[in-house]
């Protein structure tokens, strides 16, 4: 799949935002006054910034409001609802927090909505049979793991962050390994795509058009194997690094920022790979994956 920067930024940042808001809503950290305002503002900024980034991807952003209509079937629509509800539900919690109130039941609801948003985002990808690498439990697992780890780091929950970082890295390793096999497992091949497998070995003779098209740009992105390996290593190291930073360095803003930087590096690398390495079955028609 084409690794569109807008979508990568959206998923990483909004994930981080909703992850952080989850902790705030649950009251796992209790910043108050201006600190509380800032904390919630950061959470909102990431969450909303990510959502705005995602509209750059749209052909008609001015019609985005219509995206709320199809919550019955569409994970994208559900994500919209969940995000709006989560942000709405978080508002009183945030106001309360500034005044020093504990989140309480409303906080729990808001936290669940934040988690639901992360889940919906992940399901947009995980639901797609056409992209076997995504169509797997590791997709929601990773989205949650990234959001909660990032959120924990932002929350300065050193031990939890370290544990989550280790878990995230392990999960990422599993997803990378698993991803290699997904396409074959899903059974998509030029043979099944054309139905000609019964006759013999099928290969592309001529592509439909020698010119480019939307499908090739959007869904058929070929990453070099070597390139992918390198980025995977970077992602694995960068996601595990916060554990070391938070456990070994003295606490404080600098340490948190360092850890966050490492985490985001990992997140962006992993998310780039999440798209770039994902092969859409339509690629089979073009002899590409």
């Amino acid at each position: 799949m084409h690794p569109a920067p807008s979508v990568i930024v959206f998923t990483v940042l909004s994930g981080l935002g909703f992850g952080f808001l989850t902790y705030l809503n649950l009251g796992l950290i209790l910043p108050q006054g201006l600190g509380g305002f800032l904390a919630f503002a950061i959470g909102y900024a990431f969450a909303i910034g990510g959502l705005i980034a995602s509209t750059f991807h749209l052909g008609h952003p001015e019609r985005a409001i219509r995206a709320f209509t199809q919550w019955r079937t569409s994970w994208l629509s559900r994500e919209g609802w969940a995000a709006v509800l989560a942000l709405l539900a978080t508002a009183p919690v945030a106001l309360g927090a500034m005044g020093g109130a504990r989140p309480g039941l409303l906080g729990l609801i808001a936290a669940l909505l934040c988690l639901a948003t992360i889940g919906c985002t992940s399901m947009i990808y995980a639901q797609l049979k056409t992209v076997p690498r995504w169509n797997h439990w590791t997709t929601p697992a990773l989205f949650f793991a990234f959001a909660l780890t990032g959120g924990a780091i932002l929350s300065d929950l050193a031990v939890l962050s370290a544990v989550l970082s280790l878990g995230l890295t392990a999960l990422l390793a599993v997803a990378f390994a698993q991803g290699e096999r997904r396409f074959a497992e899903a059974g998509a091949s030029l043979a099944s795509a054309t139905g000609l497998g019964a006759i013999g070995q099928v290969r592309v003779f001529e592509q439909a058009h020698t010119a480019g098209n939307y499908l090739l740009r959007e869904m058929i992105h070929v990453v070099g194997r070597k390139h992918a390996r390198k980025l995977q290593t970077i992602a694995l190291i960068a996601t595990v690094l916060p554990a070391a930073i938070l456990l070994l360095l003295p606490g404080g803003l600098v340490t948190v920022l360092l850890a966050l930087a490492a985490h985001l590096t990992g997140a962006f690398a992993a998310r780039w790979l999440f798209f770039a390495q994902a092969e859409h079955v339509v690629g089979t028609y073009y002899g590409k994956r």
């Binding site: 052909g59 019609r63 994208l76 056409t130 992209v131 939307y214 959007e218």
Partner: peptide, 27 residues
């Protein structure tokens, strides 16, 4: 008239049957 051009439907189609028009921004 209702399409926001998000492209998700094209992602969901296994057959490459949908193309987002680059000028009009609709599927």
């Amino acid at each position: 008239d209702a399409c926001i051009g998000c492209g998700l439907c094209a992602w969901a189609c296994p057959y490459g049957a949908r193309e987002l028009d680059a000028a009009a921004g609709v599927m």
